[in-house]
């Protein structure tokens, strides 16, 4: 219980720091929102008036106070590009991205764990070098390269899957999955390679431990030793790394979503950045960082369920 309260307080503190960093990064910009709204050719007096009314002449600390106040009360401002309230806009896009993030994570884990374990079991033999080489090539290919290859192969070449667009799962679930599949795969392949390497490294360490020898000395079969005794210990560290990769995924969706015209958070953030839509940039960056932080928190809490050593600590 004390652990949970500690974690919760830590989350609030981190969210506060995230908001400060977000605000600071977006305020090093030469030029401001008033200029964006009225254009560079506008009348200086009108510009000054708008600045005054938007509070842009106030000290930064007051501007930050107003912004964070808005965030807390649900008034996130209006996007300059989309002319829509930012809150609902982000809420809608986050679900679209959640779909491909979850799908790519699932694809990656389902393939990476068996492959990594397999490589670790056959350490320094051809199985290991094959798996390790494939994984190494996998982590070296940029996401958009995967994306382009997938588009060329599955969309243009074979015509099996759509290469562009987003369909809401509530409208048509099957179609939504079909649209989300290629972006998820583009995200998931690199991730899978990375997690395979991690799983292999973790399992190699675990298989060298004394309790594995004890398990073998009991006469247990290699299958039991590796897949029960070994994997039960590897799953925690691998999940932790997978959790950390959520951050990487939320960076990659910017590239992949814009490549696939998949209108999620990444696409939205990209539009905001391209058009220097400051309020939308602030909102998106804040939300992404918060989601990444919360995903890591979730993994940490999950870890405490898996590992009895932390459960009591």
């Amino acid at each position: 219980m004390a652990y949970l309260i500690n974690r919760l307080m830590s989350v609030v503190l981190t969210l506060f720091l995230i908001s400060i960093i977000t605000f600071a990064v977006t305020n090093i910009l030469p030029g401001d929102v008033a200029m964006m709204i009225m254009g560079t050719q506008s009348n200086p007096e009108a510009l000054a008036g708008l600045r005054e009314s938007l509070g842009l002449n106030d000290p930064l600390i007051m501007q930050y106070g107003r912004w964070i106040g808005g965030i807390l009360t649900g008034d996130w401002g209006t996007s300059l590009v989309f002319k829509e309230p930012i809150g609902p806009l982000i809420a809608q896009k986050v679900t679209a991205s959640a779909l491909i993030v979850v799908m790519s994570m699932t694809i990656a884990l389902v393939c990476a764990i068996p492959l990594g374990v397999w490589a670790a079991v056959h350490r320094d033999r051809w199985q290991d070098s094959t798996a390790s080489t494939v994984a190494l090539i996998g982590v070296s290919l940029p996401d958009f390269f995967w994306g382009i290859m997938l588009i060329l192969l599955f969309a243009r070449g074979l015509g099996w899957l759509p290469s562009s667009g987003f369909v809401h799962p509530v409208d048509d679930f099957q179609l939504a999955i079909r649209h989300a599949f290629l972006p998820s795969l583009a995200l998931g392949l690199g991730l899978m390679a990375h997690l395979t390497r991690m799983t292999r490294a973790t399992m190699t360490g675990i298989l060298g431990q004394e309790f594995i020898r004890v398990a073998r000395a009991k006469g247990l079969s290699e299958g039991t030793v590796v897949w029960r005794y070994g994997l039960a210990n590897a799953i925690g560290p691998v999940m932790t790394v997978a959790g950390l990769q959520v951050g990487y995924l939320f960076g990659s969706i910017i590239v992949v979503e814009s490549l696939f015209n998949y209108t999620g958070m990444g696409w939205l953030t990209y539009q905001a950045l391209l058009n220097r839509d400051i309020p939308l940039i602030q909102g998106s960056v804040f939300v992404i960082a918060a989601v990444v932080m919360l995903a890591n928190l979730a993994v940490d809490l999950l870890y405490t369920l898996i590992d009895p050593r932390i459960r009591l600590a």
Partner: peptide, 8 residues
């Protein structure tokens, strides 16, 4: 800072 994806 690590909560912010590096690419973002």
């Amino acid at each position: 800072l690590l909560s912010f994806p590096a690419l973002l």
